[in-house]
Design a protein around this nucleic acid. Structure first.
Length: 423
RNA sequence: GGUAGGGUACCGAAGCGGCCAAACGGGGCAGACUGUAAAUCUGCUGGCGAACGCCUUCCUUGGUUCGAAUCCAAGCCCUACCA
């Protein structure tokens, strides 16, 4: 069996490791963990790399622990952040954990009945009873100031105009302690994370070495950017969520379908389990006929299927077909409702729609934040009603614009859809 | 606690008594071109109005002034150095 490190390297999932010994250690089943920030009740496309790395490890027979930072999330990781974060409330974190586990379960097997189930832990469970004194006595003394201050995440922030609070500075202690705790309780011997986590990961390996005299490992993978240098995972300025209530099937599918030619092969390797032979074929297909976007389709299909299931994928593809097929003629309101089930929508009473200027309606429906924005959109020719461009500000909503008297498909620009329901 | 600097729209950053809803850059939105690309080009980017315009903004609260983002006072917050 090929060592999993080779797989990681081949799939752009490897950047660095704390020791070359890790390769040998991975020949035997190892317990490994990665952390997730509970800043939201849904994970995002930006979390895919970590998720995929864990999924590969689980498939290779290693024991996987998904750590959710209920405690660390209350503090805020300064890594890669230019500013101090807003602190989350404990209740909010609690809620977020539920959503995150649900998201992860689509990639990682948590079923206790399966042969190698993953487990999820919340570091709040072991930090909640820790007192400040305990922390200083039992943990703090093993952290050396020189090392702590030399971390990139600290240095960068100290050099910035904003500086850094003690709270954030201590973040690395908490994350370091997580590793120690998991080592002691589960024999966890490897932490993985994005390259921005290097400092936090080594805080953990150091702590275990000092306290237990044992070598544990850390491994990082590169942060994914597209070929124009933008951080992966944002669509039109918004994060792409795994939760269908936040990012519709359609939007999720579309996000991957729009992957740049220059990125799609790399993304297939990182974000899917598609075998290399197949990826090579797709690479050739992109080179031969880029306009066809065959590789993008596979990428979008694979991920949509994994995250939203066959049904979600079917809806996303159907929506794509309808929306880029031109006319909406012949579609029943019921079909549209299904296709747009989780697209942004609003319901207005008929008398606020029919006979009113279109720009006022879209502002009232909440599609645009203000009338001014709505007006601008219409003036610039960016609004479409049922896939027909709106001509000007004087355009009024007619009864005939409503499919079966109750629905209209609104679109701003090329890609952003909104469903208007009338009662 | 002391000294110095600073807090301007989504972000960065000009403005330092009227010509300021506030330069410029980034971001965002839209349009053209295209492959539902990328790159490029164009327009828009506080609220209300078709529009001359009106309204609410430049950390907060007071004050000076015909007039304040700009001056003064107090407060809050941030940064650096010192203690």
């Amino acid at each position: 069996m090929a060592n999993i490190l080779d797989t990681f390297k081949a799939r752009y999932l490897f950047e660095d490791m704390t020791s070359p010994e890790l390769a040998k250690a991975l020949d035997k089943p190892l317990t490994v963990y990665a952390g997730f920030d509970p800043t939201n009740d849904s994970l995002q496309a930006g979390n895919f790399v970590t998720i995929m790395a864990l999924a590969h490890l689980q498939r290779a027979g290693h024991k996987v622990i998904a750590l959710v930072g209920g405690a660390t999330g209350l503090i805020g990781d300064p890594s890669g952040k230019s500013k101090e974060r807003n602190l989350l409330s404990a209740e909010q974190v609690e809620l977020n954990l539920v959503g995150i586990k649900e998201n992860l379960a689509r990639f990682i097997d948590f079923d206790p009945a399966s042969p190698n189930p993953a487990v999820m832990v919340n570091n709040y469970d072991w930090f909640k009873d820790f007192t400040f004194i305990d922390l200083l006595r039992d943990v703090g003394r093993y952290f050396r100031m020189g090392i702590m201050l030399s971390k990139d995440s600290v240095k960068k922030r100290m050099e910035s105009d904003d500086g850094m609070s003690f709270t954030e500075f201590c973040y690395q202690i908490l994350q370091g302690y997580d590793f120690l705790h998991l080592y002691k309780t589960c024999g966890c011997a490897l932490q993985i994370g994005g390259s921005d986590q290097w400092g936090n990961i080594t805080a953990g390996t150091e702590l275990v070495r000092r306290l237990c005299g044992q070598e544990v490992f850390g491994m990082t993978f590169p942060l994914v950017c597209d070929s124009t240098g933008k951080k992966f995972g944002k669509s039109e300025g918004n994060a792409v969520f795994l939760d269908a209530r936040k990012t519709s099937y359609y939007d999720f599918y579309q996000f991957f379908l729009r992957t740049l030619d220059a990125d799609v092969v790399r993304y297939l390797k990182i974000f899917t389990f598609v075998p290399f032979e197949r990826i090579a074929e797709l690479e050739a297909a992109v080179a031969a006929d880029p306009g066809k976007r065959e590789a993008q389709q596979v990428l979008a299909e694979e991920l949509t299927r994994t995250v939203h299931g066959e049904q979600g994928l079917a809806i996303a593809k159907k929506a794509t077909e309808v929306l880029f097929g031109g006319s909406l003629d012949g579609l029943a309101a019921g079909d549209l409702e299904k296709i747009f089930a989780n697209v942004a929508s609003a319901t207005l009473p008929a008398d606020q729609v029919i006979g009113k200027p279109a720009f006022e309606v879209i502002a009232a429906a909440g599609m645009m934040a203000s009338k001014g924005e709505a007006r601008r959109l219409v003036q610039q020719g960016g609004l479409n009603i049922n896939n027909v461009r709106v001509s000007g500000l004087e355009r009024v909503f007619e009864a005939t614009d409503l499919i079966e008297g109750r629905l209209a498909v609104l679109r701003s620009g090329k890609k952003s859809f909104f469903l208007l329901k009338v009662r």
